[in-house]
């Protein structure tokens, strides 16, 4: 762990809603560093948006504390927190034009200076030509940029992004995401992104936190979390994986697919995660423990093969060079040690 102090810190935040025994947020402890792009990732209904609303001050937590730059802001109203937000639907004020929307954020500056400053922010997001347009007259991508400019114009200490790319169509999403990320990097803005899209989270954030049923399951750099998920929920949410039961003995485990390497030394029954792309298919010679290739699924840029070992189905991703036909016996070669998962069910 880095030794720099946390810029934003939450301690065991909890929030229950009156209409159910369910805790929307059960115990959230986060530490976010200055200028970091952090992502809360989880399925819909996991409490990530509630966490965001707690941070912004729209909801009051039942328990727990929020510290910003070491100061307790748990009881501060939203307007006193200096935390900006870009909503999923952007929430541009419909009665103000694009420029006025941005000037709205500059209220603490002298009236005369506001317009010029707002123009600078518009230029920053490339919307100079649209200053006098009303929000409904510009496209979704432009609305997103205008909302971003408005939030940044208030010079927030932290910027919250609530699924800001989900309203855009797939082709636009990629480029807007990249522009946004570059802009935040350039300005060194500390940012928390909320999304349910694991690909977006992994490509956008410096660190991600996986949320499920009001709890954080795992926090870390995307590569690490993907490669070494701590439990079955994380392993499955971040992408496709094979969950395999096995009997561990040191750095190997005996499994239905044979003896395979594992990532930490242990013994006894274990649950393992083995990513489809970490396996290679090879032709079987009769002496070894082989599986039967039962199905191949062509997906364009790659292929998924389903291999049966007794009761266990294993999926293996290969590229176009793999030409095994269904029904052939095959062997698996493991390219990366399988991850030992903790037994806690999601």
């Amino acid at each position: 762990m880095d030794c720099r102090d946390a810029y934003l810190k939450t301690e065991a935040l909890a929030k229950t809603f009156s209409d159910g025994a369910l805790a929307a947020v059960r115990r959230i402890s986060l530490e976010i560093r200055r200028s970091e792009i952090f992502c809360l990732l989880g399925p819909s209904g996991c409490g990530k948006t509630t966490t965001l609303r707690l941070l912004a001050g729209f909801e009051k937590p039942d328990a727990g504390k929020i510290f910003l730059e070491g100061k307790d802001i748990t009881d501060s109203p939203p307007e006193a927190r200096n935390i900006g937000i870009v909503f999923q639907d952007y929430a541009l004020f419909p009665h103000l034009n694009v420029l006025e929307n941005i000037a709205f954020a500059l209220w603490s500056h002298p009236r005369k200076a506001r317009k010029a400053m707002a123009k600078d922010f518009l230029e920053m997001v490339g919307l100079s030509d649209f200053a006098s347009y009303m929000p409904h007259e510009i496209s979704g991508g432009q609305q997103q940029r205008a909302a971003l400019a408005r939030a940044l114009a208030a010079e927030p200490k932290i910027l919250l992004l609530d699924e800001p790319f989900s309203g855009l169509d797939t082709r636009l999403r990629q480029s807007v995401r990249e522009e946004t990320r570059n802009l935040l990097r350039e300005r060194g803005t500390t940012c928390i992104l909320v999304t349910h899209d694991q690909e977006e989270a992994m490509s956008f954030a410096d660190r991600i936190a996986l949320m499920n049923e009001g709890l954080i399951e795992q926090t870390g750099v995307p590569e690490d979390v993907y490669a070494a998920p701590s439990n079955p929920f994380v392993a499955q949410f971040l992408g496709r994986t094979n969950l395999i039961e096995g009997l561990a003995n040191g750095l190997n485990a005996d499994t239905p697919i044979g003896i395979i390497p594992i990532d930490k030394s242990t013994s006894g029954h274990v649950l393992l995660s083995l990513r489809p792309e970490h396996i290679v298919l090879e032709p079987a010679n009769s002496s070894q423990q082989s599986g039967i290739l039962v199905r191949r699924e062509f997906k364009g840029h790659d292929m998924t093969h389903w291999v049966k070992f007794g009761d266990t189905d294993i999926q293996v991703d290969t590229d176009f060079t793999c030409t095994f036909d269904a029904g052939t016996p095959v062997l698996l070669r493991i390219r990366k040690a399988a991850t030992v998962l903790s037994r806690t069910e999601p």
Binding site: G57, E79, R81, I83, A91, A151
Partner: peptide
Amino acid sequence: ASSRHEEAARTLGRTPRQAFIS
């Protein structure tokens, strides 16, 4: 008039009353 607008105004420094009016 989505309540998001009022919330956005709050994060931009307006009190509840100011956000309502503006």
